[in-house]
Simulated scan of single mutants.
Amino acid sequence: MRTELVSEPGDTTRPNEDFAAVGLPASGQGGCVIVLDGVTPPGGGTGCAHSVPWFTARLGGALTELTVSGRDLTLPEVLERAIRRTADAHAGTCDLSHPRTPQATVVLTRWSAASVEYLVLSDSVLLVQGPGGTVTLLQDDRLDRLPRAALATDALIDTHLRNKEGGFFTAAADPSVAARAVTGTLPRHEVRALVALTDGATRWTEKFREGDWTALFDLVAKEGARSLVDRVRELEAADRTERTFLGRGKTHDDATAVFVEL
């Protein structure tokens, strides 16, 4: 089995808000991958005394322990318990009802000799390569399907869309959002390799249009996750002035890529 993990902050003067972990073996069999992308809040309060990296470390640690040890739990149950455990850790000091309370996107995958389970919540993604080389994108596309006008301001997003019916969901303080995740199970023999990515790494495809998802997967498999992140950084730097591709987005984003060859 080959694994590779690269996670790099978008700004070296700020903490990386992503989290990534690989668990081998999970309860004596198979393994797991956990990837979180902490949501950077806009200016203003969050109702919380803790930082986004604090939150992703807490949630990621809980997810790692529960995914590895809780083979009797489904992945939504794992996420539900991890969110509740993290919320309990700061409910006494923070306003967890605030729409910008620390939160994150989630990719979970866990495999055994028989199957590969997956869970995706919000805009991080999982790529799955079959034995014939076909690459399948597993994603939660609710954010992509929203009209651009609805995303015009942070106030509109927080009031009408963030963790609301008809909008999109992230892992924050409400354990019930675990039921909103995109989930599924694949036969183990249908999966040759996996790549889990935060949206800072998927910019190569989604922002800069350098290649489709198969091309991105092949780049990581052949040249490594480090090569993908380096190429994204080069593209970001080249577009820093004209912003043809980046538009109003931040110049550099935290970027995480995890590759596993089963």
Rank of each mutant, 00 (worst) to 15 (best):
M1C: 01
G10A: 02
T12R: 08
R14A: 11
N16D: 14
V22K: 05
L24W: 07
V39K: 00
V52D: 02
G61P: 00
G61Y: 02
S69T: 06
L75S: 03
A82F: 07
I83E: 14
H90A: 09
D95R: 09
D95C: 04
P99M: 13
P102T: 08
Q103C: 14
A104R: 10
V107C: 07
L108A: 07
T109Y: 03
W111E: 08
S112N: 14
A114T: 12
S115E: 11
S115C: 04
V116M: 01
V120N: 10
L121K: 11
S124W: 11
V128M: 12
Q129M: 15
Q129H: 05
D144K: 14
P147D: 14
P147S: 13
L156C: 09
I157N: 09
K164L: 11
G166L: 02
F168V: 00
P175D: 00
R180S: 10
A181R: 10
V182E: 02
T183V: 11
G184H: 05
L186R: 02
V191R: 06
L194G: 04
A196V: 09
T198L: 10
T198H: 06
K207F: 11
F208T: 07
T214M: 04
L216D: 03
A221W: 05
K222C: 09
E223K: 15
S227Q: 13
V229I: 14
D230H: 14
V232P: 02
R233C: 00
L235R: 06
D239E: 13
R240I: 07
R240M: 12
L246R: 13
R248T: 12
D253M: 07
D253N: 07
A257S: 05
V258G: 07
L262E: 03
